[in-house]
Design a protein around this nucleic acid. Structure first.
Lengths: 207, 207
DNA sequence: TAGATTGTTAATCGATTAACAATC
DNA sequence: TAGATTGTTAATCGATTAACAATC
């Protein structure tokens, strides 16, 4: 199977494998069997082998998988080998938290610019990231490549901003607004991080 | 079926229904059919009716669903009718973003206290939330009920802090550390918000 | 009443798990 | 070599979709 058409559940497990393998590399572990890995991740060995078989023969009978090789391979499937540039929209507290604490470089991302409408913030920098006025966006894009947008604007501005960003050519959105953006799928790919959905699921399980 | 043993995919869709219905209430819409709702959410009408049938006969043939009733019903399933108290661990930028911007009250949550190890922060308040030293936790819990913990400490402190919190009796964790906590399932319920997993999925689809 | 739409059962689809021959 | 463990096929399980009688 083509690695670019993996089933969604497999795609969503890949980062977890990656994280686990990163820990193992850190701990100096050289090889791992599907059984051990499954045990550590609370899934089945079958699932591990089935998942990995989607993108190649990575293991060796009687031995298992080489941790570093496997990690790198999954990294490639996830596109970590390709450097990406993102722009942040909305330098509120969440935007600031991401700018100052999220390790973009760990995933080969570079946070190149931030856009705001608050004139008090425009012109300053946060953790080395320059803040532009939102109306400078089009000009900025004329001379800079931006692969994805981080949407961290207030709820009320979410849909409008998303629409504009996508119309200006940024087709990948990382959406922190807790709002369903409702852009047609052909226009953009949206990865939602809905805190509120997550909290409500926690509520459900507390009952 | 008992509403406390819904299939996981259904549970994870409930907040999206809730959000959608909230929008409809806001727009003054009184009734909605499964077909219309499905269209707005990019799912099938069958799925909508199947999902709702898990927790009762909420609709009326030929009419559809009353928006307010339906929203409230789903709210009850999600536990929004029960007031909850949470404590925050780690008043870094993310903790601050949550404290200042997340509308806990909208979901019947109350953010009662924050815990930190940085002595410069201890004793101050953020948005009305008092910051205690982490070593005051046990004392605090002796006189205050805390239903859930928000884990927003640095990666390096994640597992240790989680273990302690759970041992002191808080059994529900909202985990923002990007670390798999690896607590036995019987000890605690963990709701993960892994930014890094989310970003990697975005990467995958950018290829 | 006629049209609309539900709730539910049956059919389909897809994902997970089990089993095992191949082989390191 | 013997034991371990893969990659893959088949079996199972569960989730989604389709269909339709019931009924507002």
């Amino acid at each position: 199977m083509d690695i670019y058409s993996l089933p969604l559940p497999v795609v969503r497990r890949l980062p977890k494998y990656y994280r686990q393998l990163d820990d193992l590399v850190y701990d100096g572990v050289e090889r791992i069997s599907s059984g051990k890995l499954a045990e550590m991740m609370n899934i089945t060995a079958s699932q591990v082998r089935q998942d990995f078989s989607f993108f190649g023969k990575l293991g060796q009978q009687g031995y298992g998988y080489n941790v570093k090789t496997l990690k790198n391979e999954i990294g490639v499937v996830l596109g970590i080998d390709v450097p990406r540039t993102v722009a942040l929209f909305g330098m509120g507290h969440l935007g600031r938290a991401l700018t100052q604490h999220f390790e973009f470089s760990k995933y080969n991302y570079s946070l190149a610019a931030a856009f705001e409408i608050n004139p008090d913030l425009v012109g300053s920098t946060v953790n080395g990231v320059r803040i532009y006025h939102y109306n400078q966006l089009q000009t900025y894009l004329a001379s800079h490549k931006v692969d994805a947008a981080i949407l961290a604007v207030p709820r009320s501005a979410a849909r409008y901003t998303a629409r504009e960003i996508v119309d200006l050519g940024i087709k990948f959105l990382w959406n922190f607004t807790n709002v369903d953006l409702k852009l047609p799928e052909r226009d953009a790919f949206i990865e939602d991080v809905h805190f509120s959905d997550s909290l409500l699921c926690l509520s459900y399980y507390m009952k």
